[in-house]
Design a protein around this nucleic acid. Sequence first.
DNA 1: GCGAATGATTAAGA
DNA 2: TCTTAATCATTCGC
Length: 429
Amino acid sequence: MDEQPRLMHSHTGVGMTGHPGLPQHMQEGTGAADGDGRKQDIGDILQQIMTITDQSLDEAQARKHALNCHRMKPALFNVLCEIKEKTVLSIRGAQEEEPPDPQLMRLDNMLLAEGVSGPEKGGGSAAAAAAAAASGGVGADNSAEHSDYRAKLSQIRQIYHTELEKYEQACNEFTTHVMNLLREQSRTRPISPKEIERMVNIIHRKFSSIQMQLKQSTCEAVMILRSRFLDARRKRRNFNKQATEILNEYFYSHLSNPYPSEEAKEELAKKCAITVAQVSNWFGNKRIRYKKNIGKFQEEANMYAARTAVNAANASSHGSQANSPSTPNSAGSGGSFNMSNSGDLFMSVQSLNGDSYQGAQVGANVQSQVDTLRHVISQTGGYSEALTANQMYSPQGINANGGWQDAPTPSSVTSPTEGPGSVHSDTSN
DNA sequence: GCGAATGATTAAGA
DNA sequence: TCTTAATCATTCGC
């Protein structure tokens, strides 16, 4: 118990000869084996070490030097190692390697997919093209938008990489700094390479959380850009006249069953320079609008019917297949799909005089078209047989309920192939 | 500027 | 998965 005064005294940090900062009893190399006393001593030493930071650099260096040179230092170091070992063991479990953050993985994947991270491939043109294809746009019309999109994406990419580089640089600098500091400190306190490594990992984790924020904001920017780009793509543009004519020709020549097969859609899409989806949209809209207001479309229907009939007549007079007139190619494109059921053409004509379509308003001009058409038909040798007044094609068309009755299951049917005379109808009036 | 036309989108249904 | 029907949003013609 007589050590107490000395311990108390040692708190002052004086009483050492040649080794300021160390307790007297350590300097004297007392063999006091009392555990409490030893702990207290260690506490004192640590206190001394801590105070170093409060002192001037020179003074601190001097004290550090004194500590390093002290003969008891190795013993103290061992004690510290022991304590450290125990502490590390207790926290080791808490610092197991964590699995990769799923959020971070998502962000990484997205940035990679958008062409922001990873190797540059034309500034995300692939993503832009994919977006274009997904929304069914026509390539040439959107080239300006594409380049705009690419430019903006490239800008985002550049900012992202610049920031990322900055973060990485700062991370490396900070890591190096901490490592140097720890190595330096390892001379005075026990720091194992593993601990340094763990510290580096901690730093990296901290920086990667900052990086995640950067990735997140980059992703947000890309999403905004993308949504704007897609919104811009929503701006519809009317199909050109040629495309509309091709579509209308097909529609009115297949009026009894205006459901083009997949092949027909593809062909139409090719001819109209639009996508298959657009063809489907067009036919969907057309069917609905036609059905809703047949009267309004009657004139258009007759026009296409007449045109197709004339073409059919021409084709027939030129010795082509009478039963299978090809599509009038007013569009001027080379290949033409086969308007196999040309009888449909007369569905609209028939409706003018018959009562198939209630409320169809027939103007005089339409009637004259019908007359012209009849005349043309009558002069059409191959056709006249099948298209006599009594045998004109009766559409399996819109029924009382407003549907294309008896139409085969949409999408499963190929282009209608029934012949002109396959159904009857009286259009003689 | 207004109304019609028209391409696209969406929900519901088969 | 495709179609219908309704609706939106834009374009076009006056």
